[in-house]
């Protein structure tokens, strides 16, 4: 039995013999679907040719998809980076609290006043307060003051400039009275706070002599 569907191309390409053509046209009259295929031949071919277009687009879209994915990944990385920076900034600010504490807790000493006879101490302090720390230090070391007294005032000058290491280096290990002792302990604790060594500062606060002046206790605790 003839399958006329196999002859559609030849019929429309005018390649059938007259007998076969007549037979095909008779079949068209009785087969509605075959007739539709002939009527819509160009549309069928057009749809079929679009399959190639679709095939190429599919390949291209699959190549594009990872790029779009990468863009999303970039946004995620940026968001994570912002979050991390925010956290670092927060921790940095938290870490800086001791510095703020130093400024809040530090109180200047009773600086020596100018006398009519010997002004070497007050002159050196003035130099230091004006920013000439090295000259002030040298002037104090050249003065006739006791060594512990020289060291104490040099330490006070460094403490006023928040120079913790230098302060600790010059703090005297002996003192004449409890007032000076309390002040030296106070400067030592502040220096460790300034250095960020809060644990060490806490240990020193806990180890303060029981008769330490209340003013220092309140200030430090």
């Amino acid at each position: 039995m003839t399958d006329y569907w196999e002859h559609i191309d030849d019929y429309l390409g005018n390649k059938l013999s007259p007998v076969a053509k007549l037979s095909f046209e008779n079949a068209l009259k009785s087969d509605r679907k075959l007739e539709s295929a002939v009527e819509n031949y160009n549309t069928l071919k057009l749809i079929s040719s679009e399959f190639l277009d679709e095939e190429v687009r599919n390949v291209l879209s699959k190549l594009e998809a990872p790029k779009k994915g990468n863009t999303k990944l970039k946004y995620v990385i940026i968001l994570v980076a912002i979050a991390v920076l925010g956290l670092i900034s927060y921790l940095y600010q938290a870490d800086k609290k001791p510095e703020i504490l130093y400024a809040e807790v530090y109180e200047e000493p009773a600086w020596p006043i100018r006398r009519s006879v010997d002004n070497s101490l007050s002159d050196a302090i003035k130099l230091g307060m004006d920013g000439n720390i090295e000259m002030a230090k040298q002037k104090l070391l050249d003065s006739g003051l006791e060594t512990s007294e020289q060291q104490y005032w040099i330490a006070e000058l460094f403490a006023s400039k928040e120079m913790a290491d230098s302060t600790l280096a010059y703090l005297p290990k002996s003192w004449h009275d409890n007032i000076r002792r309390d002040r030296i302990n106070y400067l030592e604790i502040l220096s460790y706070i300034k250095k960020g060594q809060n644990e060490k500062a806490k240990q020193l606060i806990d180890a303060l002599p029981p008769d330490t002046d209340d003013w220092y206790i309140k200030k430090l605790k």
Partner: peptide, 17 residues
């Protein structure tokens, strides 16, 4: 291949209808 083409063409005509 021709038989397969005819079968596919019938399916496509059905869809178009």
């Amino acid at each position: 291949a021709r038989k397969k083409k005819c079968l596919c063409m019938k399916e496509l005509v059905d869809w178009l209808e």
